[in-house]
């Protein structure tokens, strides 16, 4: 199995381990701690993967900026999660909610811009996308529709109260808007991965597509969960499963990108080390 294949399998192994541990911890006093620990670990891994990719590039490189921004989203979300610590319970709840909302807004802006940059790598690099223009636009339209259907309701649900003055709903609005735009960008990421299939440059895009597809699943479950008749535990486990896959595929994508850059740098090292003919 190549390193890239290993990175593709890793999130599935994580997901299987999560399900097994979820079953083991459910109903115990440690369950909440287990869930919170799993969520934060997955977020930290996404941050590490994204910034590992970013710092594989030299200063000023196009994808360095993109990966820094994608990782920046998780860094800001982890900062927001700090507001959940007991120490913040002593602060004014409204102030904490507004601070959290600002962090979520910045996180989503970072995510959208970073993903946008990665999604238009093909255009900046002047790559050819596969399929006819009609097929490409159909892909963009279909994914856009799915993003609107699954992430749109959360925008509407939070926008009303926010417009009514409930600033604590700002985080929900920004989060859902960020999701909607990022999920729509699955289309160009997928087409780029398909264009580069069979080549190592395609792996980061394929894994990133899998990450955003998992986030689409996360939003889809929130919309369709009640209709599926899931109980509270099943709904929560399903959501956390998709979140874990979204985070871990993001981690794998970052490491795959670092591996691509690293392999080429090793090529340069090998050429330098090669003895010159006398």
């Amino acid at each position: 199995m190549s390193r890239f294949q290993g990175l593709a399998v890793l999130p599935l192994v994580w997901a299987a381990a999560f399900l097994a541990l979820d079953a083991a911890f459910f109903g115990t006093a440690s369950y909440t701690v287990f869930l919170r620990g799993e969520v934060e670990t997955a977020k930290v891994l996404t941050l590490l993967g994204s910034w590992a990719a970013a710092f594989a590039f030299e200063r000023g490189a196009y994808q360095r900026r993109a990966w820094l921004l994608v990782g920046g989203c998780m860094a800001l979300l982890l900062l927001r999660d700090l507001t959940l610590l007991p120490v913040f319970r002593g602060f004014d709840a409204r102030t904490v909610a507004i601070a959290a909302g600002i962090l979520v807004a910045l996180a989503n802006a970072s995510q959208v811009v970073g993903t946008w940059m990665l999604a238009r790598t093909w255009k900046v690099a002047q790559l050819e996308l596969p399929g006819t223009a009609v097929a490409q636009w159909l892909t963009v339209g279909l994914v856009g529709l799915l993003a609107a259907v699954f992430a749109g309701p959360a925008v509407l649900r939070n926008a009303g109260p926010l417009l009514g003055g409930d600033l604590s709903r700002a985080a929900g609005v920004f989060s859902a808007l960020g999701d909607m735009v990022s999920l729509w960008l699955i289309a160009p990421l997928l087409l780029t991965a398909l264009a580069l299939r069979g080549g190592m440059f395609g792996w980061p895009f394929a894994l990133l597509t899998a990450s955003y597809a998992a986030w689409l699943g996360y939003d889809a479950l929130a919309v369709m969960g009640p209709g599926l008749g899931l109980d509270a535990h099943a709904a929560r486990t399903g959501a956390e499963l998709f979140r874990a896959l979204g985070c871990l595929y993001g981690f794998s994508a970052g490491l795959a990108q670092r591996e691509v850059v690293g392999q080429l740098r090793r090529l340069a090292g090998a050429a330098t080390a090669r003895p010159r003919p006398a």
Binding site: F57, Q63, L127, F201, L264, A268, A271
Partner: peptide, 22 residues
């Protein structure tokens, strides 16, 4: 070169192009 710069940065691009040239 510009296409490869976008994909993998300048250091990796030069490594790949030198290899192909050789």
């Amino acid at each position: 070169r510009p296409m490869l710069h976008t994909m993998v940065g300048s250091v990796s691009t030069e490594a790949l192009l030198s290899d192909i040239q050789r």
